[in-house]
Design a protein around this nucleic acid. Structure first.
Lengths: 213, 213
DNA sequence: TTAAAAATACTCCCTACGGAGTATTGTAAT
DNA sequence: ATTACAATACTCCGTAGGGAGTATTTTTAA
């Protein structure tokens, strides 16, 4: 099975101990892989990476103190040869896309089973971009790796978006930010325009999809 | 540690194989527990339960073909002595409450670590209602076990709620359901009333919180 | 320091939404 | 058969939302 004498050094970054345990269980009987680190926080992981050499990183998207997408980019910039596989419960297109655009070698859902995981690891080593089955279905023949246009928002816009997502009316927002309701209206209009929709609900849905909320 | 000769029979119901692996890893070295079943689908679990006897059920809330809350109620109605612990990523109050109201002996977040899990299992066996740390923080001194009034919706209302959550306007909904926009308006008004709010966004937020979407 | 971007605030206009109430028809369960 | 609820559809009214455009001040970056 292995064409290498050395084991691949694997680190797991996930804030769910159960998931870490799960990966350990899946990998522990396989001679090709050796888990050399497990981290629940981005910071711990980054400290580790400052001094250690690894081959494969299993990286959760949602971490208590950071964002898997950014971490992925940093790792890949410093060490493009390291294989980074995103792992997450989230099967949203934009997130998967962002991971891949930031250099990830693949993306696994936590619903993947042992075989799936081992297959994806091997395929990633072989240079493929691996997506677990469900993710692949999400995309059909969609233009992967072409950036989804996530609108850039100003500080104020993000603030107002947040309040809108809480169900606040323009007047309430105006009061809590000490500005004119008409200004709120302007910001809201800009948000709708940037998200290319005429519906508050769609605006908020998209914002959530893009990880802005 | 154990005051029993027989091992407690544990089953795990979770659609994430990694989580199952994690629990197996946590429990496998403990003489008190024995995993006698693991299921990714509610149906498989229910077939198993029809013929087997178990002591403890670790039950995910979100399953591909069912709802942990309902399953919990069924199990507890048939066998009140079985210990049911909810496990989930979701730390929303209403969901935890619903589990407990339906007889669950506790609720663990998947972020719980091995010690946390073992402690909670033991405490549940000792007759306590166990909540993992983060969940307990959510509640403070809140009136647990008093039902949160989750509105009962009719078929049509659920249908329209769904479309509203997708950002559809009343007119679009009317067209796709072949009814008058005024009827849609009536249903929307009923929804807002049942959720006790005047904001579509809040309506949708609550619906999501209650697991209706 | 000067140009660009952000935040502020307004106009006008029209439509969609939200509150309150009434009414008819259909469809369950008792 | 009859009571209850669901689903349908309407009226009237007022406000909030949304489209399009203009304009001033403040902040930030080149």
């Amino acid at each position: 099975m292995s064409d290498n004498i050395k084991k691949r050094k694997v680190v797991i970054v996930d804030d769910h101990p159960l998931v870490i345990e799960g990966f350990k269980n899946v990998l522990k009987d396989h001679l090709d892989f050796q888990i050399v680190g497990q981290f629940r926080k981005a910071e711990d992981f980054q400290n580790f990476m400052a001094t250690e050499v690894v081959d494969i990183i299993l990286l959760d998207i949602t971490l208590p103190d950071g964002n898997g997408i950014h971490i992925c980019r940093e790792v890949k910039q410093a060490n493009p040869e390291i294989i980074v596989l995103g792992i997450s419960n989230l099967s949203e297109r934009s997130i998967v896309k962002q991971m891949l655009q930031n250099g990830a070698n693949g993306y696994l859902l936590k619903t993947a089973d042992s075989n799936d995981i081992l297959y994806c690891l091997q395929a990633a080593i072989d240079g493929e971009i691996v997506l677990s089955q469900e993710i692949r279905e999400l995309f059909d023949m969609a233009d992967l790796r072409k950036p989804e246009d996530i609108p850039e928002l100003t500080k104020r816009e993000k603030q107002i978006l947040q309040l809108l997502a809480e169900g606040k009316k323009s007047l309430e927002i105006a009061e809590s930010l000490f500005i004119s309701p008409l200004t709120v209206k302007t910001h809201r209009a800009t948000l709708l325009q940037k998200f290319q929709t005429g519906s508050l609900v769609i605006l908020i849905n998209k914002a959530k999809e893009y990880g802005l909320l």
